[in-house]
Design a protein around this nucleic acid. Structure first.
Lengths: 352, 352
DNA sequence: TGAATTTGCTTAATCGGTTAAGTAAATTTA
DNA sequence: TAAATTTACTTAACCGATTAAGCAAATTCA
């Protein structure tokens, strides 16, 4: 077993100083007037023995790790999965590595993760924050650590945020339901005060109020988030109890999934017995029978903005730039689950 | 903006040496005979100012980072997503942080990732390796860096591996098809020489040969892995050309998805026109219409074994223990896609 | 009471890099 | 030809921790 070589080992081997090697490896040979001959010799050796500097030592010395931490609710959630993947790729092009972790939307877990990553001296954070972590975030802000929030944020904190217009998202979906002449429209959401959720709820409520319709809302406790079966059960009861509902809007990814499951159990036929729209699109929605209409978030644009905002914070000069909240529009992806068969012919007009 | 405190800043503040603080913080106060009074004082200060040691410095000094790297094909793949999540949780209970990255099953990407993580001095690796990275792995082995491969491995390399019995998985699925009296059974797989794939193919071939049936195989080029549409197109042509096929086995997650898409386009009815089984289960398979039969991998057990094997390598003493290849059985999860309606009544007997 | 031991710390080297400052030799300038 | 400058490096401090070794003061022992 070969022991890992340090820059000093190479220095000894080549009978030069460690500094010289460091300069060469960091492209400062010219600036520091290292002769071309010696530079070649060092580069050859490094190439031959495949030497790679210890990043811990380097980061410790220069005070930068070129690593950023990205905390999302769950890396296995399709929405977060695609965002993280794009962000990772873009950040790597900028010379940064991205490390991920799942918060489970749990404040304790998240606070601990932030600590761990701070201890590891990451250069910045991208966070889809759970509730009640204002203090942790505030401490990041105070210490001037580059930070971008996405998907949700705390209006009272001065941070850079990248969001979708959640209010407009549900509001537009409702207008679409109205065009299809639905009146008894249910809304299944989380019992959460997080801004993305409250905005979605507001969109639904405002739309219903404008049409003088009665709202019909099922809020699902946050603690159940891992227990698909229980959520399905609650939605089942909700739908069974409110037999008059003709259409349902699900406020988030996994509620849609559980909702579909519940509907299947109740043997309700989509879309003729009941129309469905889900917030957040899902790769598999086009494979379900019927395919599922969704309020899609512009994943690519969101990722681009996240990276852009973070880079502003990371670059010394721009770090003092004012913090921005970027709000992007959602897009309604119309599929079969929202269109009663009798209306299939004029779909084009409706979805436009 | 507060500047981050180092152990020396605290030392100055409290008029003690940095060593004393280090001992106290590492629970060596007794051993090093630090007085209880001073210990209290230090702990109070640390608590009050929320001091946390710089892990870069610590890791550099002690030569351990308590971080392990986990490289999978894609963190958004449902199979890998669930494994990573369990592994992360279990490793964190053992005091390790797990960092993830997607290899895209690309050798270049993976080789680079291994380098990056080695530079960052991670303590160990968990890898679902792409082809052609034997050299990178060999260098990890030579340097005695704890390593566990999973999902696939290189028989010629002496590594710890955690696998599923891929051969048996497809072989059993085939036996199940035979019981249902299917004879013209197709197999859609990747054009890959990776062991998990070749084993699945062998299972299919052996089963067909034993029944003296003609095989009917579609291999899909590996380069297309990101291009769902093209894969769907190929499968569509394959199925259209081989009209006699009564049942199809898809060798992997995303082939199943594309296959279902192709079948939908061809308006073939599952399961009556064609029966379907997919290798790898998927949370959404129970929501499709019809629900999809799958060869499920025991995700929990796989994760447990991965962690167990890695811990053996990580613990100095056991690091010399012989390397093992753990092989776990798959489980056939019978759903609607494989059972012709006429046979629904005797499902119990068949699936058992 | 003087020596030995114990107590309660501190000193200083170290991990593997980076980088400002220094220096001897070669070259140019005056 | 002596002084000034340039060349091509080296020296050594530093980043923030850990830890073996050291050492004065207090206590115990003989």
């Amino acid at each position: 077993m070969r022991k890992k070589q340090s820059i000093h080992d190479i220095a000894k081997e080549l009978k030069v100083s460690a500094a010289t090697i460091s300069y060469v490896l960091n492209g400062k040979a010219r600036e520091k007037r290292i002769s071309t001959a010696l530079e070649k010799k060092i580069l050859n050796y490094v190439e031959k023995y495949n030497y790679r500097p210890n990043m811990l030592a380097k980061s410790l010395r220069i005070g930068k790790s070129k690593v950023i931490a990205m905390l999302v609710e769950g890396i296995d959630d399709p929405f977060f999965a695609s965002i993280t993947r794009i962000v990772e790729k873009e950040m790597s092009q900028k010379g940064y590595k991205t490390f991920f972790a799942s918060t489970e939307n749990d404040p304790m877990v998240t606070i601990e993760l932030i600590k761990v990553f701070r201890d590891a001296q990451v250069d910045g954070f991208i966070i889809a924050p759970p509730p009640d972590i204002e203090d942790s975030l505030l401490s990041l802000i105070k210490d001037n650590i580059p930070l971008v929030l996405f998907d949700r944020y705390f209006p009272e904190l001065e941070t850079s945020n990248v969001m979708v217009d959640n209010f407009q998202g549900t509001y537009e979906a409702m207008q679409y339901f109205f065009k299809l002449n639905y009146k008894h429209i249910g809304f299944v959401t989380l019992d959460s005060s997080q801004i993305q959720m409250s905005e979605r709820l507001k969109g639904y409520k405002k739309a219903m109020r404008e049409k003088h319709l009665l709202t019909c809302i099922q809020k699902i406790s946050f603690e159940l988030r891992q227990e698909q079966k229980k959520i399905t059960e609650i939605i089942k009861k909700f739908l069974a109890k409110n037999g008059h509902i003709e259409a349902v809007l699900f406020a988030t990814n996994y509620l849609s999934i559980s909702g579909l499951e519940a509907i299947r159990i109740l043997k309700i036929k989509i879309p003729n017995d009941m129309a469905i729209i889900g917030f957040d699109d899902n790769t598999h929605f086009s494979l379900f029978t019927p395919t599922v209409t969704a309020i899609a978030q512009p994943v690519r644009e969101l990722s681009d903005q996240i990276v852009k905002q973070l880079m502003v914070r990371l670059n010394g000069e721009g770090a003092q730039a004012p913090k921005k909240t970027i709000v992007l529009p959602t897009r309604l992806v119309v599929r079969e689950s929202s269109i009663p068969t009798k209306m299939i012919t004029n779909v084009q007009n409706i979805s436009g």
